[in-house]
Design a protein around this nucleic acid. Structure first.
Length: 478
RNA sequence: GGCCCCAUCGUCUAGCGGUUAGGACACCGGCCUCUCACGCCGGUAACAGGGGUUCAAGUCCCCUUGGGGUCACCA
Protein backbone atom coordinates (compact mmCIF):
# COMPACT_ATOMS: atom_id res chain seq x y z
CA UNK A 1 0.00 0.00 0.00
CA UNK A 2 1.44 3.36 -0.87
CA UNK A 3 1.43 5.80 1.98
CA UNK A 4 -0.35 9.10 1.64
CA UNK A 5 0.37 11.94 4.03
CA UNK A 6 -0.88 15.45 4.10
CA UNK A 7 0.01 18.78 5.52
CA UNK A 8 -3.11 20.80 6.20
CA UNK A 9 -2.35 24.28 7.46
CA UNK A 10 -4.95 26.95 7.94
CA UNK A 11 -4.07 30.23 6.29
CA UNK A 12 -3.98 32.55 9.25
CA UNK A 13 -1.02 34.76 8.40
CA UNK A 14 2.30 33.04 8.18
CA UNK A 15 3.72 29.55 8.19
CA UNK A 16 4.95 28.84 11.67
CA UNK A 17 8.26 27.09 12.27
CA UNK A 18 6.47 24.42 14.31
CA UNK A 19 4.05 23.78 11.48
CA UNK A 20 6.96 23.45 9.13
CA UNK A 21 8.45 20.72 11.28
CA UNK A 22 5.20 18.78 11.12
CA UNK A 23 5.13 19.23 7.37
CA UNK A 24 8.76 18.17 7.11
CA UNK A 25 8.28 14.90 8.97
CA UNK A 26 5.26 14.01 6.86
CA UNK A 27 7.15 14.92 3.71
CA UNK A 28 10.23 12.94 4.73
CA UNK A 29 8.16 9.87 5.43
CA UNK A 30 6.22 10.14 2.18
CA UNK A 31 9.45 10.52 0.22
CA UNK A 32 11.13 7.68 2.09
CA UNK A 33 8.29 5.30 1.31
CA UNK A 34 7.77 6.46 -2.23
CA UNK A 35 4.36 7.63 -1.17
CA UNK A 36 2.43 10.79 -1.82
CA UNK A 37 2.47 14.08 -0.03
CA UNK A 38 -0.59 16.27 -0.34
CA UNK A 39 -1.12 19.87 0.61
CA UNK A 40 -4.55 20.92 1.72
CA UNK A 41 -5.74 24.31 2.87
CA UNK A 42 -8.07 24.32 5.86
CA UNK A 43 -9.86 27.58 5.39
CA UNK A 44 -13.23 27.04 6.96
CA UNK A 45 -12.83 29.82 9.46
CA UNK A 46 -13.75 32.68 7.18
CA UNK A 47 -13.02 35.30 9.80
CA UNK A 48 -9.36 34.38 10.07
CA UNK A 49 -8.38 33.43 6.55
CA UNK A 50 -6.98 35.42 3.66
CA UNK A 51 -5.65 34.84 0.17
CA UNK A 52 -2.35 36.45 1.05
CA UNK A 53 -1.92 33.92 3.82
CA UNK A 54 -2.50 31.10 1.36
CA UNK A 55 0.14 32.53 -0.93
CA UNK A 56 2.54 32.68 2.00
CA UNK A 57 2.01 28.97 2.58
CA UNK A 58 2.86 28.18 -1.04
CA UNK A 59 5.91 30.45 -0.98
CA UNK A 60 7.15 28.96 2.27
CA UNK A 61 6.76 25.38 1.13
CA UNK A 62 8.39 26.07 -2.20
CA UNK A 63 11.29 27.93 -0.68
CA UNK A 64 11.93 25.00 1.62
CA UNK A 65 11.62 22.59 -1.25
CA UNK A 66 8.79 20.65 0.38
CA UNK A 67 7.03 19.85 -2.86
CA UNK A 68 3.54 18.39 -2.87
CA UNK A 69 2.29 15.73 -5.25
CA UNK A 70 -1.31 16.76 -4.92
CA UNK A 71 -2.82 20.01 -3.83
CA UNK A 72 -3.48 23.57 -4.86
CA UNK A 73 -1.73 24.72 -8.03
CA UNK A 74 -0.69 21.19 -8.97
CA UNK A 75 -4.06 19.47 -8.88
CA UNK A 76 -4.69 15.80 -8.35
CA UNK A 77 -7.48 13.20 -8.38
CA UNK A 78 -8.88 14.09 -4.97
CA UNK A 79 -9.39 17.80 -5.40
CA UNK A 80 -10.34 20.44 -4.76
CA UNK A 81 -7.70 20.86 -2.09
CA UNK A 82 -9.12 23.85 -0.36
CA UNK A 83 -11.82 23.13 2.18
CA UNK A 84 -13.92 26.10 1.26
CA UNK A 85 -14.45 24.42 -2.11
CA UNK A 86 -15.45 21.07 -0.66
CA UNK A 87 -18.58 22.15 1.18
CA UNK A 88 -20.92 19.81 -0.72
CA UNK A 89 -18.80 16.87 0.35
CA UNK A 90 -19.12 17.73 4.03
CA UNK A 91 -22.85 18.19 3.74
CA UNK A 92 -23.21 14.89 1.96
CA UNK A 93 -21.22 13.02 4.59
CA UNK A 94 -23.20 14.65 7.36
CA UNK A 95 -26.43 13.55 5.72
CA UNK A 96 -25.18 9.99 5.53
CA UNK A 97 -24.38 10.07 9.22
CA UNK A 98 -27.87 11.36 10.01
CA UNK A 99 -29.41 8.62 7.89
CA UNK A 100 -27.37 5.91 9.55
CA UNK A 101 -28.33 7.24 12.97
CA UNK A 102 -24.82 8.37 13.92
CA UNK A 103 -25.69 12.05 13.89
CA UNK A 104 -28.68 14.30 14.35
CA UNK A 105 -29.96 17.76 13.65
CA UNK A 106 -29.78 19.96 16.72
CA UNK A 107 -31.87 23.09 16.98
CA UNK A 108 -30.68 24.19 20.38
CA UNK A 109 -29.89 27.89 20.44
CA UNK A 110 -26.67 29.41 21.64
CA UNK A 111 -28.57 30.92 24.53
CA UNK A 112 -29.91 27.53 25.52
CA UNK A 113 -26.47 26.01 25.49
CA UNK A 114 -24.98 28.93 27.39
CA UNK A 115 -27.65 28.59 30.05
CA UNK A 116 -26.94 24.88 30.41
CA UNK A 117 -23.23 25.62 30.62
CA UNK A 118 -23.77 28.24 33.26
CA UNK A 119 -25.85 25.89 35.37
CA UNK A 120 -23.19 23.22 35.07
CA UNK A 121 -20.38 25.54 36.02
CA UNK A 122 -22.21 26.83 39.03
CA UNK A 123 -22.52 23.29 40.25
CA UNK A 124 -19.20 21.82 39.13
CA UNK A 125 -16.82 24.70 38.54
CA UNK A 126 -15.15 25.75 35.34
CA UNK A 127 -14.51 23.24 32.56
CA UNK A 128 -15.81 19.82 31.78
CA UNK A 129 -19.22 20.91 30.58
CA UNK A 130 -20.73 18.60 27.96
CA UNK A 131 -23.88 19.66 26.26
CA UNK A 132 -26.70 17.12 26.26
CA UNK A 133 -28.93 18.08 23.42
CA UNK A 134 -32.68 17.46 23.75
CA UNK A 135 -32.63 16.72 20.01
CA UNK A 136 -30.35 13.74 20.33
CA UNK A 137 -33.13 11.21 19.95
CA UNK A 138 -35.55 13.24 17.89
CA UNK A 139 -35.95 12.88 14.17
CA UNK A 140 -38.77 15.31 13.68
CA UNK A 141 -36.67 18.39 13.10
CA UNK A 142 -37.30 20.38 9.94
CA UNK A 143 -34.17 20.31 7.74
CA UNK A 144 -35.17 23.73 6.42
CA UNK A 145 -34.94 25.34 9.81
CA UNK A 146 -31.42 26.49 10.73
CA UNK A 147 -29.61 23.88 12.81
CA UNK A 148 -26.27 22.31 13.45
CA UNK A 149 -25.48 18.65 12.93
CA UNK A 150 -24.13 16.84 15.95
CA UNK A 151 -22.43 13.50 16.23
CA UNK A 152 -24.00 10.96 18.57
CA UNK A 153 -20.98 10.25 20.70
CA UNK A 154 -20.82 7.14 22.87
CA UNK A 155 -20.51 7.72 26.61
CA UNK A 156 -19.18 4.37 27.69
CA UNK A 157 -15.99 2.50 27.01
CA UNK A 158 -12.95 4.20 25.55
CA UNK A 159 -11.47 5.11 22.23
CA UNK A 160 -7.79 4.65 21.61
CA UNK A 161 -5.11 4.04 19.05
CA UNK A 162 -1.46 3.12 18.79
CA UNK A 163 0.29 6.38 18.10
CA UNK A 164 3.39 6.21 15.92
CA UNK A 165 5.34 8.37 18.31
CA UNK A 166 3.50 8.12 21.63
CA UNK A 167 2.49 4.49 21.56
CA UNK A 168 -0.89 3.35 22.91
CA UNK A 169 -3.23 6.12 24.03
CA UNK A 170 -6.87 5.91 25.03
CA UNK A 171 -9.50 8.42 26.08
CA UNK A 172 -12.62 7.54 28.06
CA UNK A 173 -15.71 8.04 25.94
CA UNK A 174 -17.35 9.67 28.92
CA UNK A 175 -15.20 12.69 28.04
CA UNK A 176 -16.80 12.91 24.65
CA UNK A 177 -19.71 15.16 23.92
CA UNK A 178 -22.01 15.29 20.94
CA UNK A 179 -19.61 17.46 19.02
CA UNK A 180 -20.80 19.62 16.18
CA UNK A 181 -20.07 18.40 12.68
CA UNK A 182 -21.66 21.14 10.63
CA UNK A 183 -22.29 24.66 11.79
CA UNK A 184 -25.52 26.44 11.18
CA UNK A 185 -23.93 28.13 8.17
CA UNK A 186 -23.12 24.76 6.66
CA UNK A 187 -19.36 24.98 7.19
CA UNK A 188 -17.74 21.99 8.85
CA UNK A 189 -15.87 22.22 12.12
CA UNK A 190 -12.24 21.19 12.22
CA UNK A 191 -12.76 17.60 13.35
CA UNK A 192 -15.34 16.86 10.72
CA UNK A 193 -13.71 18.69 7.86
CA UNK A 194 -10.36 17.10 8.53
CA UNK A 195 -11.97 13.71 8.85
CA UNK A 196 -13.97 13.91 5.62
CA UNK A 197 -10.91 15.12 3.75
CA UNK A 198 -8.59 12.53 5.20
CA UNK A 199 -11.11 9.82 4.42
CA UNK A 200 -11.91 10.89 0.89
CA UNK A 201 -8.31 11.71 0.07
CA UNK A 202 -7.19 8.29 1.21
CA UNK A 203 -4.78 9.62 3.81
CA UNK A 204 -2.98 6.71 5.46
CA UNK A 205 -0.98 8.61 8.09
CA UNK A 206 -2.28 11.60 9.95
CA UNK A 207 0.52 13.74 11.39
CA UNK A 208 0.00 16.84 13.48
CA UNK A 209 0.99 18.57 16.68
CA UNK A 210 0.26 16.90 20.00
CA UNK A 211 -2.22 19.65 20.76
CA UNK A 212 -4.46 17.56 18.49
CA UNK A 213 -4.26 14.48 20.68
CA UNK A 214 -7.78 15.07 22.00
CA UNK A 215 -9.14 15.41 18.49
CA UNK A 216 -8.12 11.91 17.60
CA UNK A 217 -10.87 9.96 19.42
CA UNK A 218 -13.68 11.93 17.73
CA UNK A 219 -12.06 11.34 14.37
CA UNK A 220 -11.63 7.64 15.04
CA UNK A 221 -15.29 7.50 16.05
CA UNK A 222 -16.18 9.08 12.72
CA UNK A 223 -14.14 6.55 10.76
CA UNK A 224 -15.98 3.79 12.57
CA UNK A 225 -19.34 5.37 11.94
CA UNK A 226 -18.51 5.09 8.26
CA UNK A 227 -17.30 1.57 8.68
CA UNK A 228 -13.85 2.69 7.61
CA UNK A 229 -10.47 1.75 9.03
CA UNK A 230 -8.87 4.72 10.81
CA UNK A 231 -5.47 5.81 9.48
CA UNK A 232 -2.24 5.68 11.49
CA UNK A 233 -1.72 8.68 13.72
CA UNK A 234 1.59 10.34 14.53
CA UNK A 235 1.48 13.22 16.97
CA UNK A 236 4.48 15.41 17.43
CA UNK A 237 5.37 17.30 20.57
CA UNK A 238 5.23 21.05 20.32
CA UNK A 239 8.04 23.41 19.55
CA UNK A 240 8.50 25.70 22.53
CA UNK A 241 10.15 29.07 22.95
CA UNK A 242 13.48 29.35 24.84
CA UNK A 243 11.48 29.91 28.03
CA UNK A 244 9.57 26.67 27.61
CA UNK A 245 6.34 28.42 26.73
CA UNK A 246 4.48 28.01 23.50
CA UNK A 247 6.55 29.50 20.70
CA UNK A 248 5.31 32.89 19.56
CA UNK A 249 6.46 35.95 17.67
CA UNK A 250 7.90 37.54 20.74
CA UNK A 251 10.41 34.69 21.08
CA UNK A 252 12.09 34.80 17.71
CA UNK A 253 11.40 34.80 14.03
CA UNK A 254 8.70 32.14 13.86
CA UNK A 255 7.65 32.68 10.26
CA UNK A 256 9.77 30.57 7.91
CA UNK A 257 9.95 33.22 5.23
CA UNK A 258 11.82 35.42 7.66
CA UNK A 259 14.65 32.95 7.50
CA UNK A 260 14.77 33.23 3.75
CA UNK A 261 15.14 36.98 4.15
CA UNK A 262 17.74 36.51 6.85
CA UNK A 263 19.86 34.59 4.33
CA UNK A 264 19.37 31.09 5.65
CA UNK A 265 19.53 28.16 3.23
CA UNK A 266 16.54 25.79 3.21
CA UNK A 267 18.55 22.66 3.93
CA UNK A 268 20.02 24.26 7.01
CA UNK A 269 16.62 25.18 8.37
CA UNK A 270 15.25 21.74 7.56
CA UNK A 271 18.21 19.99 9.18
CA UNK A 272 17.77 21.95 12.38
CA UNK A 273 14.04 21.37 12.47
CA UNK A 274 14.47 17.68 11.79
CA UNK A 275 16.82 17.32 14.74
CA UNK A 276 14.44 19.22 16.98
CA UNK A 277 12.44 16.27 18.20
CA UNK A 278 14.05 13.54 16.19
CA UNK A 279 17.48 11.97 16.36
CA UNK A 280 19.63 9.41 14.67
CA UNK A 281 22.30 8.37 17.17
CA UNK A 282 24.90 11.06 17.55
CA UNK A 283 24.50 12.45 14.05
CA UNK A 284 23.85 16.16 13.71
CA UNK A 285 24.34 17.27 10.15
CA UNK A 286 22.20 15.65 7.48
CA UNK A 287 21.69 16.32 3.83
CA UNK A 288 18.16 16.27 2.56
CA UNK A 289 18.72 12.80 1.10
CA UNK A 290 20.04 11.50 4.41
CA UNK A 291 17.05 12.90 6.22
CA UNK A 292 14.74 11.07 3.86
CA UNK A 293 16.68 7.86 4.29
CA UNK A 294 17.02 7.95 8.06
CA UNK A 295 13.84 9.52 9.32
CA UNK A 296 11.83 7.28 11.62
CA UNK A 297 8.73 7.96 13.73
CA UNK A 298 9.99 5.74 16.52
CA UNK A 299 13.07 7.93 16.84
CA UNK A 300 10.93 10.98 17.54
CA UNK A 301 10.92 12.24 21.10
CA UNK A 302 7.76 12.65 23.12
CA UNK A 303 8.81 15.78 24.88
CA UNK A 304 8.37 19.37 23.79
CA UNK A 305 11.55 20.96 22.43
CA UNK A 306 12.75 24.46 22.90
CA UNK A 307 13.68 26.45 19.88
CA UNK A 308 17.36 27.42 20.01
CA UNK A 309 18.41 30.05 17.50
CA UNK A 310 22.09 29.57 18.33
CA UNK A 311 22.03 25.96 17.33
CA UNK A 312 19.97 26.79 14.27
CA UNK A 313 22.70 29.24 13.27
CA UNK A 314 25.37 26.61 13.76
CA UNK A 315 23.60 23.97 11.69
CA UNK A 316 22.79 26.62 9.14
CA UNK A 317 26.44 27.60 8.85
CA UNK A 318 27.48 24.02 8.33
CA UNK A 319 25.10 23.74 5.39
CA UNK A 320 26.16 27.02 3.92
CA UNK A 321 29.79 25.98 3.93
CA UNK A 322 29.25 22.75 2.08
CA UNK A 323 27.50 24.43 -0.82
CA UNK A 324 29.68 24.88 -3.87
CA UNK A 325 30.95 28.34 -4.69
CA UNK A 326 28.88 28.27 -7.85
CA UNK A 327 25.68 27.48 -5.97
CA UNK A 328 26.46 30.11 -3.38
CA UNK A 329 27.10 32.65 -6.10
CA UNK A 330 23.58 32.22 -7.37
CA UNK A 331 22.11 32.47 -3.92
CA UNK A 332 24.05 35.49 -2.75
CA UNK A 333 23.36 37.73 -5.73
CA UNK A 334 20.03 39.02 -4.38
CA UNK A 335 21.68 39.87 -1.10
CA UNK A 336 24.43 41.76 -2.89
CA UNK A 337 21.76 43.58 -4.85
CA UNK A 338 20.19 44.65 -1.57
CA UNK A 339 23.46 46.41 -0.82
CA UNK A 340 23.36 48.12 -4.17
CA UNK A 341 25.90 45.82 -5.78
CA UNK A 342 24.90 44.46 -9.16
CA UNK A 343 26.88 41.31 -9.78
CA UNK A 344 26.14 38.53 -12.25
CA UNK A 345 25.82 35.10 -10.64
CA UNK A 346 28.22 33.68 -13.21
CA UNK A 347 30.87 36.34 -12.62
CA UNK A 348 34.10 34.35 -12.10
CA UNK A 349 35.39 36.96 -9.67
CA UNK A 350 32.34 36.31 -7.51
CA UNK A 351 32.85 32.57 -7.48
CA UNK A 352 36.51 33.00 -6.59
CA UNK A 353 35.83 35.52 -3.84
CA UNK A 354 33.26 33.30 -2.18
CA UNK A 355 35.72 30.57 -1.30
CA UNK A 356 37.53 32.34 1.55
CA UNK A 357 34.51 34.33 2.67
CA UNK A 358 32.18 31.40 3.16
CA UNK A 359 34.31 30.05 5.98
CA UNK A 360 33.57 33.25 7.84
CA UNK A 361 29.84 33.33 7.16
CA UNK A 362 26.88 31.50 8.56
CA UNK A 363 24.20 33.13 6.43
CA UNK A 364 23.94 34.56 2.94
CA UNK A 365 23.64 37.97 4.55
CA UNK A 366 27.04 37.43 6.18
CA UNK A 367 28.39 36.25 2.87
CA UNK A 368 27.16 39.34 1.05
CA UNK A 369 28.64 41.51 3.77
CA UNK A 370 31.96 39.73 3.51
CA UNK A 371 31.93 40.17 -0.25
CA UNK A 372 30.91 43.79 -0.14
CA UNK A 373 34.33 45.46 -0.26
CA UNK A 374 35.30 43.30 -3.17
CA UNK A 375 32.64 44.76 -5.44
CA UNK A 376 32.75 48.28 -4.14
CA UNK A 377 34.72 50.88 -6.15
CA UNK A 378 38.07 51.85 -4.64
CA UNK A 379 36.82 55.32 -3.81
CA UNK A 380 33.54 54.05 -2.41
CA UNK A 381 34.98 51.64 0.13
CA UNK A 382 33.05 51.65 3.35
CA UNK A 383 35.36 51.95 6.34
CA UNK A 384 34.79 50.57 9.76
CA UNK A 385 35.45 53.85 11.52
CA UNK A 386 36.84 52.39 14.68
CA UNK A 387 39.18 50.15 12.74
CA UNK A 388 40.34 52.95 10.50
CA UNK A 389 40.98 55.18 13.46
CA UNK A 390 43.01 52.52 15.17
CA UNK A 391 45.11 51.26 12.28
CA UNK A 392 45.22 53.98 9.63
CA UNK A 393 47.47 56.15 11.77
CA UNK A 394 50.45 58.28 10.59
CA UNK A 395 53.00 55.65 11.61
CA UNK A 396 51.32 53.18 9.30
CA UNK A 397 51.57 55.36 6.22
CA UNK A 398 55.21 54.60 5.33
CA UNK A 399 54.57 50.90 5.90
CA UNK A 400 51.64 50.91 3.53
CA UNK A 401 53.61 52.77 0.92
CA UNK A 402 56.56 50.43 1.20
CA UNK A 403 54.20 47.48 1.00
CA UNK A 404 52.57 48.93 -2.11
CA UNK A 405 55.95 49.32 -3.75
CA UNK A 406 56.89 45.80 -2.86
CA UNK A 407 53.66 44.46 -4.30
CA UNK A 408 54.23 46.49 -7.43
CA UNK A 409 57.69 45.06 -7.95
CA UNK A 410 56.95 41.46 -7.08
CA UNK A 411 55.43 38.72 -9.18
CA UNK A 412 51.73 38.95 -8.49
CA UNK A 413 51.26 35.53 -7.01
CA UNK A 414 50.43 34.65 -3.40
CA UNK A 415 53.53 32.65 -2.55
CA UNK A 416 55.92 35.11 -4.12
CA UNK A 417 54.22 38.02 -2.39
CA UNK A 418 54.37 36.30 0.95
CA UNK A 419 58.03 35.40 0.53
CA UNK A 420 58.98 38.93 -0.47
CA UNK A 421 56.97 40.49 2.32
CA UNK A 422 58.35 38.18 4.96
CA UNK A 423 61.88 38.88 3.83
CA UNK A 424 61.32 42.62 3.92
CA UNK A 425 59.72 42.58 7.35
CA UNK A 426 62.46 40.43 8.74
CA UNK A 427 65.19 42.58 7.29
CA UNK A 428 63.68 45.75 8.74
CA UNK A 429 62.66 44.12 12.00
CA UNK A 430 58.97 44.87 11.57
CA UNK A 431 56.34 42.65 13.15
CA UNK A 432 53.88 41.44 10.54
CA UNK A 433 51.04 42.51 12.79
CA UNK A 434 52.01 46.11 12.30
CA UNK A 435 51.63 45.81 8.59
CA UNK A 436 48.76 43.37 8.30
CA UNK A 437 46.07 45.27 10.13
CA UNK A 438 46.62 48.63 8.44
CA UNK A 439 46.88 46.87 5.07
CA UNK A 440 43.70 44.93 5.76
CA UNK A 441 41.78 48.04 6.67
CA UNK A 442 43.16 49.86 3.64
CA UNK A 443 42.13 47.09 1.27
CA UNK A 444 38.85 45.99 2.77
CA UNK A 445 37.75 48.79 5.03
CA UNK A 446 37.48 46.42 7.94
CA UNK A 447 39.55 44.72 10.59
CA UNK A 448 38.47 41.19 9.84
CA UNK A 449 38.85 39.58 6.44
CA UNK A 450 40.46 36.64 4.67
CA UNK A 451 44.25 36.43 4.70
CA UNK A 452 46.42 39.26 3.51
CA UNK A 453 47.85 37.61 0.41
CA UNK A 454 44.58 35.98 -0.43
CA UNK A 455 42.91 39.36 -0.37
CA UNK A 456 45.64 40.86 -2.49
CA UNK A 457 45.16 38.26 -5.20
CA UNK A 458 41.40 38.42 -5.11
CA UNK A 459 41.43 42.19 -5.47
CA UNK A 460 43.92 42.10 -8.34
CA UNK A 461 47.09 44.07 -8.63
CA UNK A 462 45.74 47.43 -9.66
CA UNK A 463 42.93 47.65 -7.19
CA UNK A 464 45.13 46.39 -4.39
CA UNK A 465 47.74 49.03 -5.12
CA UNK A 466 45.18 51.75 -5.43
CA UNK A 467 43.62 50.87 -2.10
CA UNK A 468 46.93 50.51 -0.33
CA UNK A 469 47.97 53.96 -1.50
CA UNK A 470 44.65 55.55 -0.70
CA UNK A 471 44.97 53.97 2.73
CA UNK A 472 48.42 55.48 3.16
CA UNK A 473 47.04 58.91 2.31
CA UNK A 474 44.25 58.51 4.75
CA UNK A 475 46.70 57.34 7.40
CA UNK A 476 48.89 60.34 6.89
CA UNK A 477 46.00 62.69 7.25
CA UNK A 478 44.66 60.98 10.35
C1' G B 1 -10.90 21.32 38.12
C1' G B 2 -11.91 16.57 34.58
C1' C B 3 -9.32 13.99 30.84
C1' C B 4 -4.75 13.10 28.11
C1' C B 5 0.57 13.53 27.39
C1' C B 6 5.53 14.30 29.13
C1' A B 7 10.19 14.28 32.57
C1' U B 8 18.81 12.56 31.12
C1' C B 9 23.86 18.43 31.22
C1' G B 10 21.44 25.65 30.52
C1' U B 11 19.44 23.80 25.36
C1' C B 12 18.72 19.63 21.45
C1' U B 13 19.47 14.65 22.51
C1' A B 14 21.99 9.11 22.73
C1' G B 15 20.73 5.31 26.11
C1' C B 16 15.98 0.59 24.95
C1' G B 17 18.48 -3.94 32.99
C1' G B 18 25.04 -4.35 33.91
C1' U B 19 28.08 2.39 30.47
C1' U B 20 33.95 6.05 33.75
C1' A B 21 25.91 8.11 31.54
C1' G B 22 27.91 9.42 25.05
C1' G B 23 27.38 13.39 21.19
C1' A B 24 25.90 18.42 19.53
C1' C B 25 24.84 23.86 20.59
C1' A B 26 26.22 27.41 24.13
C1' C B 27 30.07 28.55 27.75
C1' C B 28 35.40 28.33 29.60
C1' G B 29 40.59 27.11 28.51
C1' G B 30 44.42 25.87 24.67
C1' C B 31 46.39 24.96 19.62
C1' C B 32 46.57 27.17 14.66
C1' U B 33 47.54 32.50 13.36
C1' C B 34 48.53 38.76 9.85
C1' U B 35 42.71 39.85 11.77
C1' C B 36 38.12 37.24 11.91
C1' A B 37 36.32 32.74 11.10
C1' C B 38 36.78 27.51 10.02
C1' G B 39 39.24 23.47 12.13
C1' C B 40 41.56 20.67 16.14
C1' C B 41 42.50 19.41 21.52
C1' G B 42 40.69 19.80 26.53
C1' G B 43 37.16 21.39 30.52
C1' U B 44 32.58 22.72 33.52
C1' A B 45 27.67 20.52 33.35
C1' A B 46 22.34 15.89 33.68
C1' C B 47 19.34 10.83 35.06
C1' A B 48 13.10 15.81 39.44
C1' G B 49 11.83 13.16 44.41
C1' G B 50 10.08 8.76 46.94
C1' G B 51 8.69 3.82 46.99
C1' G B 52 8.80 -0.94 44.79
C1' U B 53 10.43 -5.32 41.07
C1' U B 54 15.44 -7.41 40.28
C1' C B 55 21.65 -10.28 41.89
C1' A B 56 21.65 -5.49 39.20
C1' A B 57 17.37 0.45 37.43
C1' G B 58 18.59 6.48 33.81
C1' U B 59 16.29 2.13 31.66
C1' C B 60 10.34 -1.83 34.24
C1' C B 61 5.87 -0.65 37.86
C1' C B 62 3.38 2.79 41.42
C1' C B 63 2.98 7.48 43.94
C1' U B 64 4.44 12.60 44.52
C1' U B 65 6.14 16.92 42.34
C1' G B 66 6.78 19.73 38.11
C1' G B 67 5.70 21.00 32.99
C1' G B 68 2.43 20.85 28.66
C1' G B 69 -2.13 20.07 25.98
C1' U B 70 -7.43 20.16 25.81
C1' C B 71 -12.30 20.87 27.44
C1' A B 72 -16.21 26.00 21.11
C1' C B 73 -21.30 26.62 15.92
C1' C B 74 -11.56 28.13 16.29
C1' A B 75 -7.99 25.20 13.82
Amino acid sequence: MTVRLRFAPSPTGYLHIGGVRTALYAWLYARQRGGEFVLRIEDTDVARNSDEAIQIIYDSMRWLGLDWDEGPEVGGPHGPYQQSERLALYREHAERLIESGHAYRCYATTEEIQAARKAWEEAHGHGGFRFRSPWRDRTDGDPEVPHVVRFKAPSEGETGWDDLVYGPIAYPNAEQQDFVLLRQNGLPLYNFGAFVDDLTMGITHVTRGDDHLVNTPPQILLYRAFGAEPPCFAHLPMVLGPDGKKLSKRHAAVAVLEYRDLGYVPDGVLNYLARLGWSHGDDEIFTRAELIEKFDWSACGRTGSRYDVKKLAHVQGAHLRVLTNEALAGLVVPFLAQRGLEVAPGDPRLVAAIEPVKLRATTLVDLAEGLDYFFRADDALVFDEKGAKKFLVPEAAPLLEAFASLVESTAFEAEALEAATTAWLERDGIAIKNLAQPARVAMTGRTASPGLYETLILLGRDRALSRLRRGAERARGA
